[in-house]
């Protein structure tokens, strides 16, 4: 194995790991949009909430896995409260009002984080099981990052199975396709919506817990990752699992390899891709509804 080969493989793994993080975040965003027609700009804030909860859980118990398990649950509960309090009422209010409400939520969350956790960046230790690098084919790579890649693929697989093979999956697909028809066929669409919203939030919380050891935990982390996640959703096509994966891989790899190959224009490449998609495929690469 030559050094250059090893270098590119490591870059590829970096790209894959970033893609998986984006996928965990954007899959909730895109399915919530596809099903509820609801735009949740506060999705990034929920991701940050997951990271903060995991930080506190790790600090209290001393175990990474406590945060890993607790963060999705806590964020799902937060999402539940948001859904019952605000989002249910705003479902038919039009995109602008939804954007404004959830933008207001970003502000509220930002100050909640500041009040409870302060303004400084906090660190979370990698779990002992995946600490340090792993060696294979003469390449050293962080075991934790490999774990993130594996987790992303696992979540994709589980979601795919649920959506394509189970009854609830069929209900969700029916709801995305035609909400009223699904309701006429006796599907409790409201309940399906509620479940999907909570699962989407839980995945955002999971993404936060997983990201915490790689990136540090700070109040603005949600607003920072929101834009790449939205780009993934727009490129992939709203409401589609395949689109979220494809978009995550495109954005993740373009950002990682762009920074290595052409650092001068790397930051703009993703936006060029976005512009291209908007011009030629305004509904995204894999729209859920054709």
């Amino acid at each position: 194995m030559t050094d250059t080969m090893a270098f590119w493989i490591v870059q590829g793994l970096h790209g894959l790991q970033f893609s998986m993080l984006l996928f965990l975040l954007s899959v909730g965003l895109t399915v919530i949009f596809g099903l509820l027609h609801f735009v949740n700009l506060a999705h990034g804030a929920l991701y940050a909430l997951g990271a903060f909860v995991s930080f506190s859980a790790v600090k209290l118990t001393g175990s990474y896995w406590a945060g890993f398990l607790l963060a999705p649950v806590a964020v799902a509960i937060a999402g539940m409260l948001l859904y019952l309090g605000l989002i249910k009422r705003m479902r038919n209010a039009g995109p602008m009002n939804q954007v404004l409400i959830t933008f207001g939520l970003i502000f509220v969350f930002l100050d909640i984080f500041r009040i409870f956790w302060g303004d400084i960046a906090l660190g979370v230790e990698e779990p002992a099981l995946f600490s340090g690098p792993i060696e294979f084919w003469g390449i050293k790579y962080s075991a934790y990052r490999l774990f993130v890649i594996g987790l992303g693929i696992f979540v994709l697989g589980v979601l795919h199975l649920i959506l394509s093979r189970t009854q609830i999956g069929a209900m969700i697909r029916a709801g995305v396709d035609n909400e009223h028809m699904a309701a006429c066929l006796g599907i409790n669409v409201e309940k399906v919506f509620f479940i999907v919203f909570c699962v989407g939030c839980a995945l955002a919380g999971l993404a936060g817990a997983v990201a915490a050891p790689i990136l540090s935990v700070y109040p603005g982390m949600g607003t920072e990752i929101l834009i790449p996640a939205l780009i993934v959703v727009v490129i992939g096509g709203l409401g589609s699992l395949k689109g979220a994966m494809a978009g995550s891989l495109l954005v993740g790899f373009i950002q990682t390899f762009g920074a290595v190959i052409a650092p001068q224009i790397a930051s703009v490449l993703v936006y060029v891709l976005l512009a291209g998609v908007l011009i030629f495929r305004p509904a995204g690469l894999f729209p859920a509804r054709s």
């Binding site: 780009i231 959703v233 908007l278 011009i279 305004p282």
Partner: peptide, 28 residues
């Protein structure tokens, strides 16, 4: 011009992304 075919939330997200492009360009 680029976003003229997009509507509703797609338009909002696209403007958000292109605005962020300016930020990244200036920052870098």
């Amino acid at each position: 011009a680029v976003t003229s075919r997009t509507r509703g939330i797609f338009f909002i997200m696209a403007t958000l992304a292109f605005g962020q492009m300016i930020y990244v360009m200036i920052f870098d």
